[in-house]
Write a protein that binds this DNA or RNA. Structure first.
Length: 131
RNA sequence: GCGGAUGGCCGGGUGGCUGCGGGGGCUUGCCUCCGAGGAAAGUCCGGACUCCACGAAGCGACGGUGCCGGGUAACGCCCGGGCGGGGCAACCCGACGGAAAGCGCCACAGAGAACAGACCGCUUGGCCACGCCAAGUAAGGGUGAAACGGUGGGGUAAGAGCCCACCGCGGGGCUGGCAACAGCGCCGGCACGGCAAGCCCCACCGGGAGCAAUGCCAAAUAGGAGCCUCACACGGGCCGCUUCGGCCCCGGGGCUCGGGUUGGCAGCUAGAGGGCCGGCAGCGAUGCCAGCCUUAGAUGAAUGGCCACCCCGCCCGAAAGGGCGGACAGAAUCCGGCUUACAGGCCAUCCGCGCGA
RNA sequence: CGGGCUAUGGCGCAGUCUGGUAGCGCGUCCGUCUGGGGGACGGAAGGUCGUAGGUUCAAGUCCUGCUAGCCCGA
């Protein structure tokens, strides 16, 4: 859909306010996930984060993965919701434009770990990833 | 009070801040409304809805269902009834058609395993007499999951439905019931072991695929290949000296085939819909009528995060209080069932035992 | 959304159709041969047949429900 892509290019131009970063673009293509999987990664007790810098630039993008190992549908959905929430809270300030991030849920921990703790861990992991 | 049976219900609540999906509104970034389940699950049945195939009917193959009656859009579901089994009872359970249509199987043990037959025996007779032979017999013993009707009496050389009574079984009759079936009396003297969740027979049912169905739009490979047809108007080629005529390419239309990547829209949520309170018919499932309320539609896929109070459970504590936790589980076209999972709690009816009046 | 396959000793597989004895190879253990190792030979142990019911005298096998894993089509 050309119209939508044109709009995305506008917002990614750099002049947009911080509100754009409040809801980062969601990764939808399998190829994007595979590209991130080949890039750098950081492990934390609650989740795994992968990140890569896209050659073409653009906004912050983020994707979420919870495999069957995490549990049944309820456990997977709950883990993804918590990952989305910490991404929404942390990425606008800690994420870098032009980067793709993938957050991967882990069995048990992602759904049970303290929420504030996971936010700090994401900030620390992103710093390591960028550096 | 203790124990039990059946039917039904709830599945944490309230408020605040901040986010997500969808609808609507307008002043285009704000407001407002709605937003998971009883199983949304497993995908085991039955439908609706789309597309494909098909002249009708019959027969066959394959698959399914299987006591009778009713309910239903339909069902393998539900209700009522019958029969059989379990329980002191309330009540529960049952793949519950046919084994005299045919084939097959019944290991081991045992004399003998489906058609009769005789190991130990019993009785009679004979003899070279503590044994052998012949005839009769199938009551008793032993084996087995199962042994050719059972119990009692008569009878007999010993026995045997050989005869009798009761029970069982089979046949036909009457009565009650729509029926499954039940009851009553009559006849037969026993023939017909089990397995059909082995093949099979009988009766009934069933076309295939699935919302990634299907339809439309846009971009793009590239305006591809084949067949039929229309027209020889333009252009090219061939036959022909030319006009003209015919044929082929090309062109218009139709059909088929091949390659075939994304994106959007429709389908897409109001339907045999659910809930509450009534009325009528019915034992009931259910049907009819009336009123009110309610009604998720995502597509890398929406319900999250934090806080406060209350409820419940566990732990620590003398208490105040503190800490941890909240069953099973997440819509994907929709509906009716089935099956499976489920912390804790509530309500109603009924049964047995004990105590009291 | 629809369809199929598998589950048996530690590992890989037979046996299931056609019901009565669970078998094969590798591995493990013991012994012998060798000075020792390897190897060979001989012997032995080891299986709730995924799970819960049912049919049957009898179930790994037949039927039904469930669990786990794998594969295929749109």
């Amino acid at each position: 859909m050309p119209g939508v892509e044109a709009k995305v290019d506008e917002t990614a131009g750099g002049e947009s306010p911080a509100a754009v970063f409040a809801c980062p673009e969601i990764l939808k293509k399998r190829a994007d996930f595979l590209a991130c999987a080949r890039a750098r990664r950081q492990h934390t007790p609650g989740f795994v984060v992968q990140g890569r810098r896209r050659a073409e630039g653009g906004p912050v993008r983020v994707g979420f993965t919870c495999s069957k190992k995490v549990g049944n549908a309820v456990a997977r959905n709950r883990a993804k919701r918590r990952l989305r929430e910490i991404a929404r809270a942390v990425l606008p300030e800690a994420g870098r434009p032009g980067w793709d991030y993938v957050l991967i849920g882990r069995a048990g921990e992602t759904a049970a770990r303290d929420f504030a703790l996971m936010q700090d861990e994401l900030r620390a992991a992103l710093a390591k990833l960028h550096g």
